[in-house]
């Protein structure tokens, strides 16, 4: 578990006068699911965009595979093996699974002007890539628009893994998914970990994060509240540490108040 692949040291990011991130320290190991938790506005998006090469740190250092890096673009980070699956998934609904899988990185056969997309081999690779993640697809020619949200998420993840990702950043992969689909996506996340990838999972839902995560980093208003091993904290403690914790407690207290007053009037 000490196979450190990615590290941030005292990273800050400012947008004009706005402090989006301040003094973030973070370590991610190969073969772990590192969960990034925080309420809306905690700086999760800025942090992953910094990791993915969209933003450059205003201050601090970014180490990848032991060396200090400064990515000039997301493409740069991707070429080094840091793949980000954003919420829009970068899938085209009107195109087939295979065509989406290879979009922008088509495999071809033939030569010169007669070079063409190798449909059969691409179908097979897409099928195998998905099967490896535990997703069964009948027909790789099926259009992505007919797939469920969970299946699309899994497809986007399988694609990133196939094209050589070593660090997989998942932005709210379980948002807007049902219970069963969520567990499918989390299973794929566990598969990726088993393959030795480092997975950075962003979410504000502790219940989704807790079963699959190895470590948690909590963000609140642009600052890190520390990184915790799963064995060190309980689900409730994590929930409490997030800004949402107090709010939830308050809400529970209020709800209890309602019930009491209901009983009183009855």
């Amino acid at each position: 578990m000490s196979d450190k692949i990615l590290e941030l040291k005292k990273v800050s990011r400012y947008f004009g006068s706005v402090i989006a991130l301040e003094d973030i320290d973070m370590e991610v190991n190969a073969g772990e699911v590192h969960c990034l938790l925080g309420d809306n506005g905690a700086g999760k998006s800025t942090l992953i965009k910094t990791l993915a090469g969209v933003h450059k740190p205003s201050k601090g250092e970014y180490f990848y595979e032991g060396e200090r890096v400064e990515f000039s673009s997301p493409r740069d980070a991707l070429d080094r093996g840091i793949a980000t699956v954003y919420q829009d998934l970068a899938l085209v609904p009107l195109m087939s699974i295979t065509r989406n899988f290879f979009m922008g990185r088509e495999i071809t056969r033939g030569w010169g002007p007669f070079k063409q997309f190798d449909q059969d081999r691409a179908d097979q690779i897409a099928l195998d890539g998905l099967a490896e993640m535990g997703i069964k697809v009948r027909d790789p020619q099926q259009v992505v628009g007919t797939m469920s949200g969970g299946e699309r998420q899994c497809l986007a993840i399988a694609r990133a893994i196939h094209f050589g990702a070593r660090v997989l950043i998942l932005d709210e992969p379980t948002a807007a998914l049902g219970v069963k689909q969520t567990s499918n996506v989390l299973r794929v996340v566990a598969q990726a970990r088993a393959k030795g990838l480092a997975v950075i999972l962003i979410t504000h839902n502790v219940h989704h994060a807790y079963p699959v995560a190895d470590r948690f980093t909590l963000l609140n208003r642009g600052r890190s509240m520390g990184t915790f091993l799963k064995s060190e904290v309980t689900r409730e403690q994590v929930l409490e540490m997030m800004a949402g914790g107090e709010e939830m407690e308050k809400l529970e207290a209020e709800l209890a108040e309602f019930t009491r007053s209901d009983e009183a009037t009855a």
């Binding site: 997301p74 493409r75 954003y86 829009d88 998934l89 970068a90 899938l91 085209v92 979009m103 922008g104 990185r105």
Partner: peptide, 8 residues
Amino acid sequence: KAAKNVGV
């Protein structure tokens, strides 16, 4: 946008 994100 999706196409651009994957390098098209």
